[in-house]
């Protein structure tokens, strides 16, 4: 079944038909999400209006991890059996993943400045997100350094798998290290229960970003299939 769909002949037109759906879903869900987040969601009792940065920050953080998970699936597929689509998918994903990781850091910084009075702290979450960005950049650099597509995809998949084993350890080590050195966390532990309006906005934005990723990735894979033919 999977083998069947893993043929470029079926994938190419299918991706072409799915693309507009993802594109429009991204736009519409994004508009709804922004409306919910900026107008309907009530003001936060503690953080005031500044908390609205959450609606771009948190979905970006989710995407930065989700894209890595998808890349790991592609990588395992490539290492186990040949799959052009997985190769293209993997190579195209890293820059989008890096973009979302970058956005997480920048919006987090913009959120942190008014809330904690600083642009950056070497807190566990920030540090591990920064390391994730470096891992993405390493993957991009390795992929770009190898001219042949297949070889690049295989090398990148090896690195992606090694990275995915390492990422939980990185998270754990950074958590441990920062609790040793920064006992007073700046994050509220637990925090207040989230308002349903806020949750709706958050989920809408997350869905919109997910559609964005699939839209662009299908587009990119199609471009690479075409390039391969030429």
């Amino acid at each position: 079944m999977i083998k069947h769909y893993d043929s470029l002949k079926i994938f190419y037109p299918l991706a072409g038909r799915l693309m507009p759906w993802f594109g429009w879903a991204f736009a519409l869900l994004g508009i709804f999400g922004l409306y919910w987040g900026l107008f309907l969601a009530p003001i936060d009792a503690v953080q005031g209006e500044a908390y609205r940065i959450m609606f771009v920050h948190v979905p970006s953080a989710w995407m930065s991890l989700m894209i890595y998970a998808v890349m790991t699936i592609c990588a395992i597929t490539i290492l186990l059996r040949r799959s052009k689509i997985a190769e293209y998918w993997l190579l195209s994903s890293s820059s989008i993943g890096a973009s979302f990781t970058f956005l997480t850091l920048v919006t987090g910084s913009l959120w942190g400045r008014p809330m904690w009075g600083t642009w950056w702290v070497w807190d566990a979450r920030l540090t591990s997100e920064l390391i994730l960005l470096f891992v993405y950049l390493g993957i991009i650099a390795l992929g770009n350094a190898i001219p042949e597509k297949r070889k690049a995809a295989q090398a990148v998949s090896m690195l992606t798998v090694v990275g995915s084993i390492n990422l939980p350890i990185i998270k754990f080590s950074v958590d441990w290290w920062t609790t040793l050195h920064q006992p007073a966390s700046i994050f509220r532990a637990g925090g207040s229960a989230i308002h349903p309006m806020m949750l709706t906005a958050l989920l809408l934005m997350a869905a919109s970003f997910t559609c964005y990723y699939f839209w662009l990735i299908l587009w990119r894979v199609r471009i690479q299939i075409r390039e391969n033919k030429q």
Binding site: E49, A50, R52, V56, H57, V106, L110
Partner: peptide, 12 residues
């Protein structure tokens, strides 16, 4: 944005 305009709008 309740005085947080710079931060909120630059994030978006």
């Amino acid at each position: 944005m309740g005085g947080y305009a710079v931060y909120v709008w630059s994030a978006y």
